[in-house]
Amino acid sequence: MFYWLMKYVVIGPLVKAIFRPWIVGRDNIPTSGAAILASNHLSFADSIFLPLMLDRRMSFLAKSDYFTGRGIKGWATKFFMSATGQLPIDRSGGKASEASLNTGLQVLGGGDLLGIYPEGTRSPDGRLYRGRTGIARMALEAKVPVIPVVMIDTDTAMPIGRRVPRVVRVGMVIGEPLDFSRYAGMENDRYILRSVTDEIMVALQRLGAQRYDDVYASSVKDRMPAPVR
Rank of each mutant, 00 (worst) to 15 (best):
M172L: 12
L14Y: 00
R130F: 01
S97D: 15
N102S: 07
G161E: 12
P159Y: 06
P30Q: 09
H41N: 08
G85I: 02
D214E: 10
R132V: 00
E141L: 14
A209H: 08
L37E: 04
T121E: 05
V202P: 06
T197M: 06
Y183R: 04
S195Y: 06
P13C: 12
A217T: 01
T133H: 00
G175W: 09
E119F: 03
R166L: 09
K221C: 06
M6V: 14
N188I: 07
K16Q: 07
V9D: 03
L5I: 15
V24A: 01
G185Q: 14
T121N: 07
F49M: 13
D153F: 03
G185S: 15
G93H: 01
L128Q: 07
A45N: 06
Y3W: 10
D90C: 00
A142S: 15
K73N: 08
I192G: 01
A184H: 14
I29M: 12
P225N: 07
I29N: 12
S64M: 04
A136S: 13
L101G: 02
R169V: 02
D125P: 09
V170I: 14
M224P: 12
R162P: 04
A45F: 15
Y216K: 12
Y129E: 05
G94T: 09
I89H: 10
V168T: 08
F67T: 02
K63V: 12
R163Y: 13
R163D: 09
D153H: 11
Q210K: 14
S59N: 08
L52D: 14
R91D: 08
I135E: 00
D55M: 01
R91F: 10
Y117M: 11
D153K: 14
N40R: 01
Y117V: 07
G208N: 08
G208V: 02
M58D: 14
P227H: 02
A17Y: 01
T197C: 09
T77C: 10
I116M: 12
P148D: 12
G175F: 08
E176C: 11
H41D: 10
S92V: 05
D65A: 10
S32D: 15
M151F: 06
G12Q: 07
M6W: 08
D179V: 05
S64F: 04
M1V: 09
L105W: 02
T154V: 00
S181M: 15
G175V: 08
R162N: 00
I48Q: 08
I160E: 13
V107A: 01
V202Y: 11
D125S: 06
R169T: 10
R190G: 02
F79G: 01
R162H: 03
T84P: 03
G104Y: 07
G134A: 10
P225Q: 08
M224Q: 15
F80A: 12
A17V: 04
R182Y: 03
P124G: 14
M138S: 05
D213G: 04
S100A: 15
Y191I: 08
R70P: 02
A34Y: 04
N188W: 06
G161D: 12
S47T: 13
G115T: 01
R26I: 10
R194W: 08
R162S: 11
F60L: 07
R194Q: 15
D214Y: 09
T84F: 04
M201Q: 02
V173L: 02
A76C: 11
S47K: 03
D155G: 06
A35M: 05
L42C: 02
L14F: 13
R190Y: 08
M81S: 01
P148E: 12
D198C: 02
Q205D: 11
I135T: 01
